[in-house]
Protein backbone atom coordinates (compact mmCIF):
# COMPACT_ATOMS: atom_id res chain seq x y z
CA UNK A 1 0.00 0.00 0.00
CA UNK A 2 2.90 2.35 0.65
CA UNK A 3 3.98 2.02 -2.97
CA UNK A 4 1.71 4.77 -4.28
CA UNK A 5 3.52 7.44 -2.26
CA UNK A 6 5.95 9.64 -4.13
CA UNK A 7 9.63 9.73 -3.24
CA UNK A 8 9.48 12.77 -0.95
CA UNK A 9 6.34 12.65 1.14
CA UNK A 10 4.77 15.86 2.41
CA UNK A 11 3.81 14.32 5.73
CA UNK A 12 5.64 11.54 7.56
CA UNK A 13 4.17 10.16 10.77
CA UNK A 14 5.94 7.39 12.65
CA UNK A 15 4.88 5.78 15.90
CA UNK A 16 2.60 8.66 16.85
CA UNK A 17 0.83 8.45 20.18
CA UNK A 18 -1.34 11.05 21.86
CA UNK A 19 -3.16 10.83 25.19
CA UNK A 20 -5.15 13.32 27.23
CA UNK A 21 -5.80 13.89 30.91
CA UNK A 22 -2.65 12.31 32.29
CA UNK A 23 -2.69 9.42 29.83
CA UNK A 24 -6.10 8.20 30.99
CA UNK A 25 -7.70 8.93 27.60
CA UNK A 26 -5.97 7.70 24.49
CA UNK A 27 -6.78 9.65 21.35
CA UNK A 28 -4.16 8.14 19.05
CA UNK A 29 -2.82 4.74 20.03
CA UNK A 30 -0.19 4.18 17.38
CA UNK A 31 -0.08 5.71 13.97
CA UNK A 32 2.23 5.37 10.96
CA UNK A 33 1.24 7.34 7.92
CA UNK A 34 2.78 9.04 4.91
CA UNK A 35 1.10 11.56 2.68
CA UNK A 36 2.58 12.21 -0.72
CA UNK A 37 3.41 15.62 -2.13
CA UNK A 38 0.34 17.00 -3.88
CA UNK A 39 -1.83 14.20 -2.60
CA UNK A 40 -5.45 14.64 -1.57
CA UNK A 41 -6.02 12.32 1.39
CA UNK A 42 -9.39 11.65 2.95
CA UNK A 43 -9.50 10.79 6.62
CA UNK A 44 -12.58 8.87 7.67
CA UNK A 45 -13.58 7.17 10.88
CA UNK A 46 -16.25 7.28 13.55
CA UNK A 47 -16.38 9.99 16.21
CA UNK A 48 -13.53 9.61 18.66
CA UNK A 49 -11.29 7.85 16.16
CA UNK A 50 -8.56 10.46 16.72
CA UNK A 51 -8.97 12.45 13.52
CA UNK A 52 -9.18 15.87 15.14
CA UNK A 53 -6.26 15.07 17.44
CA UNK A 54 -4.21 14.17 14.38
CA UNK A 55 -5.12 17.46 12.70
CA UNK A 56 -4.25 19.43 15.81
CA UNK A 57 -0.86 17.75 16.03
CA UNK A 58 -0.18 18.45 12.36
CA UNK A 59 -1.27 22.07 12.87
CA UNK A 60 1.23 22.38 15.79
CA UNK A 61 -1.57 23.15 18.24
CA UNK A 62 -0.88 20.22 20.56
CA UNK A 63 2.21 18.16 21.19
CA UNK A 64 2.43 14.42 20.51
CA UNK A 65 3.32 12.13 23.43
CA UNK A 66 5.51 9.84 21.36
CA UNK A 67 6.61 9.43 17.80
CA UNK A 68 7.92 11.59 15.01
CA UNK A 69 5.79 13.87 12.88
CA UNK A 70 7.33 15.83 10.02
CA UNK A 71 5.33 18.10 7.74
CA UNK A 72 7.08 19.38 4.59
CA UNK A 73 10.40 18.51 6.16
CA UNK A 74 9.73 20.35 9.41
CA UNK A 75 9.36 18.69 12.78
CA UNK A 76 6.01 19.69 14.35
CA UNK A 77 7.53 20.10 17.81
CA UNK A 78 10.84 21.83 17.16
CA UNK A 79 10.09 23.78 14.01
CA UNK A 80 6.50 24.79 14.68
CA UNK A 81 7.14 28.45 13.88
CA UNK A 82 8.37 27.75 10.38
CA UNK A 83 5.56 25.27 9.89
CA UNK A 84 2.82 27.70 10.85
CA UNK A 85 3.83 29.96 7.97
CA UNK A 86 3.26 27.25 5.36
CA UNK A 87 0.32 25.37 6.87
CA UNK A 88 -3.33 26.17 6.37
CA UNK A 89 -5.52 24.69 9.09
CA UNK A 90 -9.28 24.92 9.10
CA UNK A 91 -10.76 23.66 12.39
CA UNK A 92 -13.94 21.62 12.45
CA UNK A 93 -15.77 24.38 14.24
CA UNK A 94 -16.20 27.75 12.55
CA UNK A 95 -13.43 29.78 14.12
CA UNK A 96 -13.51 33.19 12.53
CA UNK A 97 -14.60 36.41 14.14
CA UNK A 98 -18.38 36.48 13.89
CA UNK A 99 -18.50 40.17 14.66
CA UNK A 100 -16.14 41.13 11.85
CA UNK A 101 -17.17 41.35 8.22
CA UNK A 102 -16.04 38.97 5.48
CA UNK A 103 -13.49 41.46 4.24
CA UNK A 104 -12.24 42.31 7.73
CA UNK A 105 -11.73 38.66 8.62
CA UNK A 106 -9.85 38.06 5.40
CA UNK A 107 -7.60 41.08 5.69
CA UNK A 108 -6.98 40.31 9.37
CA UNK A 109 -5.68 36.84 8.59
CA UNK A 110 -3.72 38.17 5.63
CA UNK A 111 -2.07 40.80 7.82
CA UNK A 112 -1.11 38.49 10.63
CA UNK A 113 0.67 36.36 8.04
CA UNK A 114 2.43 39.48 6.80
CA UNK A 115 0.76 39.41 3.43
CA UNK A 116 -2.18 41.07 1.69
CA UNK A 117 -5.29 39.79 -0.06
CA UNK A 118 -3.97 41.14 -3.38
CA UNK A 119 -0.65 39.29 -3.11
CA UNK A 120 -2.20 35.81 -3.20
CA UNK A 121 -5.39 36.78 -4.96
CA UNK A 122 -4.98 34.20 -7.73
CA UNK A 123 -5.24 31.38 -5.17
CA UNK A 124 -8.44 32.61 -3.58
CA UNK A 125 -10.13 34.37 -6.48
CA UNK A 126 -12.54 31.50 -7.22
CA UNK A 127 -13.87 31.34 -3.69
CA UNK A 128 -13.63 35.04 -3.05
CA UNK A 129 -15.62 35.63 -6.20
CA UNK A 130 -18.54 33.85 -4.54
CA UNK A 131 -18.07 35.77 -1.30
CA UNK A 132 -17.56 39.18 -2.85
CA UNK A 133 -21.27 40.19 -2.91
CA UNK A 134 -21.34 39.73 0.88
CA UNK A 135 -17.97 41.21 1.70
CA UNK A 136 -19.40 43.83 4.07
CA UNK A 137 -21.64 41.35 5.84
CA UNK A 138 -20.62 40.14 9.28
CA UNK A 139 -19.46 36.53 9.39
CA UNK A 140 -22.21 35.67 11.88
CA UNK A 141 -24.83 36.46 9.26
CA UNK A 142 -23.48 34.17 6.55
CA UNK A 143 -25.07 30.85 5.65
CA UNK A 144 -23.30 27.65 6.73
CA UNK A 145 -21.82 27.04 3.28
CA UNK A 146 -20.64 30.64 2.94
CA UNK A 147 -19.02 30.47 6.36
CA UNK A 148 -17.02 27.44 5.33
CA UNK A 149 -15.97 29.12 2.09
CA UNK A 150 -14.85 32.16 4.05
CA UNK A 151 -12.94 29.94 6.46
CA UNK A 152 -11.21 28.22 3.54
CA UNK A 153 -10.46 31.60 2.03
CA UNK A 154 -8.86 32.77 5.29
CA UNK A 155 -6.90 29.53 5.46
CA UNK A 156 -5.61 30.05 1.92
CA UNK A 157 -4.84 33.73 2.10
CA UNK A 158 -1.21 33.22 3.09
CA UNK A 159 -0.65 30.69 0.29
CA UNK A 160 0.08 27.61 2.40
CA UNK A 161 1.82 24.57 0.95
CA UNK A 162 -0.37 22.11 2.81
CA UNK A 163 -4.02 22.29 3.78
CA UNK A 164 -5.48 20.55 6.83
CA UNK A 165 -9.27 20.59 6.68
CA UNK A 166 -11.14 19.08 9.61
CA UNK A 167 -14.66 18.19 8.47
CA UNK A 168 -15.02 21.26 6.28
CA UNK A 169 -18.41 20.30 4.87
CA UNK A 170 -20.20 18.93 7.93
CA UNK A 171 -23.60 20.55 8.20
CA UNK A 172 -23.37 22.17 4.78
CA UNK A 173 -26.09 21.77 2.15
CA UNK A 174 -25.37 19.40 -0.80
CA UNK A 175 -25.02 22.18 -3.38
CA UNK A 176 -22.47 24.07 -1.27
CA UNK A 177 -20.66 20.82 -0.55
CA UNK A 178 -20.37 20.20 -4.26
CA UNK A 179 -19.04 23.73 -4.82
CA UNK A 180 -16.61 23.32 -1.94
CA UNK A 181 -15.19 20.13 -3.39
CA UNK A 182 -14.91 21.71 -6.82
CA UNK A 183 -12.67 24.32 -5.20
CA UNK A 184 -10.59 21.60 -3.55
CA UNK A 185 -10.29 19.93 -6.96
CA UNK A 186 -8.84 23.12 -8.44
CA UNK A 187 -6.40 23.47 -5.55
CA UNK A 188 -5.29 19.92 -6.18
CA UNK A 189 -4.57 20.76 -9.81
CA UNK A 190 -2.27 23.49 -8.55
CA UNK A 191 -0.33 20.89 -6.58
CA UNK A 192 -1.62 21.59 -3.08
CA UNK A 193 -1.20 18.77 -0.57
CA UNK A 194 -4.44 18.31 1.35
CA UNK A 195 -5.70 16.18 4.23
CA UNK A 196 -9.46 16.31 4.60
CA UNK A 197 -11.62 14.52 7.13
CA UNK A 198 -15.22 13.94 6.19
CA UNK A 199 -18.26 12.00 7.32
CA UNK A 200 -19.55 11.86 3.72
CA UNK A 201 -18.32 8.84 1.80
CA UNK A 202 -19.13 10.35 -1.59
CA UNK A 203 -16.57 13.04 -0.73
CA UNK A 204 -13.98 10.48 0.31
CA UNK A 205 -14.51 8.85 -3.10
CA UNK A 206 -13.13 11.99 -4.75
CA UNK A 207 -9.77 11.75 -2.96
CA UNK A 208 -6.53 10.10 -4.06
CA UNK A 209 -6.47 7.82 -1.07
CA UNK A 210 -8.70 7.10 1.87
CA UNK A 211 -7.30 6.53 5.35
CA UNK A 212 -9.66 4.86 7.80
CA UNK A 213 -9.11 5.49 11.47
CA UNK A 214 -10.70 3.71 14.39
CA UNK A 215 -9.88 3.86 18.11
CA UNK A 216 -6.72 5.85 17.43
CA UNK A 217 -5.33 3.44 14.87
CA UNK A 218 -5.13 3.29 11.12
CA UNK A 219 -7.43 0.49 9.91
CA UNK A 220 -6.61 0.78 6.25
CA UNK A 221 -5.25 3.19 3.69
CA UNK A 222 -5.77 2.70 -0.04
CA UNK A 223 -7.15 4.32 -3.17
CA UNK A 224 -10.95 4.34 -3.43
CA UNK A 225 -10.83 1.83 -6.31
CA UNK A 226 -8.54 -0.56 -4.44
CA UNK A 227 -10.71 -0.22 -1.39
CA UNK A 228 -13.84 -1.16 -3.27
CA UNK A 229 -12.28 -3.99 -5.21
CA UNK A 230 -10.91 -5.42 -1.96
CA UNK A 231 -14.45 -5.85 -0.68
CA UNK A 232 -14.44 -9.40 -2.00
CA UNK A 233 -17.93 -10.54 -1.09
CA UNK A 234 -21.19 -10.25 -3.02
CA UNK A 235 -23.31 -7.43 -1.64
CA UNK A 236 -27.09 -7.26 -1.81
CA UNK A 237 -29.51 -4.40 -1.27
CA UNK A 238 -32.79 -5.61 0.23
CA UNK A 239 -36.05 -3.68 0.50
CA UNK A 240 -39.57 -4.51 1.64
CA UNK A 241 -42.68 -2.76 2.94
CA UNK A 242 -41.62 -3.07 6.60
CA UNK A 243 -38.06 -1.85 6.74
CA UNK A 244 -37.46 -1.99 10.49
CA UNK A 245 -38.77 -5.53 10.88
CA UNK A 246 -36.80 -6.40 7.76
CA UNK A 247 -33.52 -5.39 9.43
CA UNK A 248 -34.24 -7.67 12.39
CA UNK A 249 -35.42 -10.55 10.22
CA UNK A 250 -32.36 -10.29 7.97
CA UNK A 251 -30.07 -10.40 10.99
CA UNK A 252 -31.87 -13.53 12.23
CA UNK A 253 -31.39 -15.25 8.87
CA UNK A 254 -28.85 -18.11 9.24
CA UNK A 255 -26.63 -17.24 6.28
CA UNK A 256 -26.41 -13.50 7.05
CA UNK A 257 -22.94 -12.18 7.83
CA UNK A 258 -23.48 -8.42 8.14
CA UNK A 259 -26.56 -6.29 7.67
CA UNK A 260 -26.68 -2.48 7.91
CA UNK A 261 -29.35 0.09 7.20
CA UNK A 262 -28.26 2.24 4.26
CA UNK A 263 -30.74 4.91 3.36
CA UNK A 264 -33.53 3.30 1.34
CA UNK A 265 -32.27 -0.27 1.49
CA UNK A 266 -30.45 -2.63 3.82
CA UNK A 267 -27.04 -3.77 2.64
CA UNK A 268 -26.42 -7.42 3.41
CA UNK A 269 -23.47 -9.78 3.01
CA UNK A 270 -23.65 -13.53 3.54
CA UNK A 271 -21.32 -16.15 4.96
CA UNK A 272 -21.90 -18.43 1.96
CA UNK A 273 -23.25 -17.82 -1.56
CA UNK A 274 -27.05 -17.65 -1.51
CA UNK A 275 -29.90 -17.84 -3.99
CA UNK A 276 -31.98 -14.63 -3.87
CA UNK A 277 -35.08 -16.82 -4.29
CA UNK A 278 -34.33 -18.63 -1.00
CA UNK A 279 -34.02 -15.34 0.83
CA UNK A 280 -37.21 -14.11 -0.81
CA UNK A 281 -39.04 -17.20 0.41
CA UNK A 282 -37.72 -16.72 3.95
CA UNK A 283 -38.79 -13.10 4.03
CA UNK A 284 -42.27 -13.90 2.68
CA UNK A 285 -42.67 -16.41 5.50
CA UNK A 286 -41.86 -13.58 7.90
CA UNK A 287 -44.74 -11.62 6.39
CA UNK A 288 -42.89 -9.11 4.17
CA UNK A 289 -44.36 -7.83 0.92
CA UNK A 290 -42.93 -5.94 -2.05
CA UNK A 291 -39.58 -7.59 -1.47
CA UNK A 292 -36.76 -6.39 -3.69
CA UNK A 293 -33.33 -8.04 -3.63
CA UNK A 294 -30.57 -6.59 -5.82
CA UNK A 295 -26.91 -7.47 -6.19
CA UNK A 296 -25.02 -4.15 -5.99
CA UNK A 297 -21.51 -2.69 -6.21
CA UNK A 298 -20.07 -1.84 -2.79
CA UNK A 299 -19.53 1.81 -1.93
CA UNK A 300 -16.81 3.33 0.24
CA UNK A 301 -19.22 3.27 3.13
CA UNK A 302 -19.80 -0.47 2.73
CA UNK A 303 -16.06 -1.02 2.83
CA UNK A 304 -15.81 1.17 5.89
CA UNK A 305 -18.58 -0.64 7.73
CA UNK A 306 -17.06 -3.94 6.72
CA UNK A 307 -13.66 -2.90 8.06
CA UNK A 308 -15.20 -1.76 11.32
CA UNK A 309 -17.11 -5.01 11.72
CA UNK A 310 -14.06 -7.20 11.21
Amino acid sequence: MEKSISSNPAVIIQGLRKTYENKSVTAIKHLDLSVGDGELLALIGPDGAGKTSLFRILATLILPDEGMVRVLGHDVVREFEALRLITGYMPGRFALYQDLTVLENLSFFATVFNTTIEENYDLIKDIYGQLEPFKHRRASQLSGGMKQKLALCCTLVHKPSILLLDEPTTGVDPVSRQEFWDILGKLKEEGMTMIVSTPYMDEARRCDRIAMMHHGELLDISTPDDLISSFGKPLYAVQSDRMFALLQDLRKYDATDTCFAFGEAHHVTFKKPIEPADLNGYLQMQGHHHIDIQRIQPTVEDCFMDQLAS
Binding site: A59, Y89, P91, F94, L96, Y97, V112, C154
Partner: peptide
Protein backbone atom coordinates in the same frame (compact mmCIF):
# COMPACT_ATOMS: atom_id res chain seq x y z
CA UNK B 1 -15.32 29.77 23.52
CA UNK B 2 -15.74 30.77 19.89
CA UNK B 3 -12.74 28.64 18.91
CA UNK B 4 -11.07 31.63 17.28
CA UNK B 5 -8.07 31.15 19.54
CA UNK B 6 -7.34 27.93 17.59
CA UNK B 7 -7.16 29.90 14.40
CA UNK B 8 -5.02 32.57 16.06
CA UNK B 9 -2.67 29.96 17.47
CA UNK B 10 -1.82 28.58 14.04
CA UNK B 11 -0.83 32.01 12.79
CA UNK B 12 2.63 33.49 13.37
CA UNK B 13 1.15 35.97 15.91
Amino acid sequence: EAGTIEQINVTPI
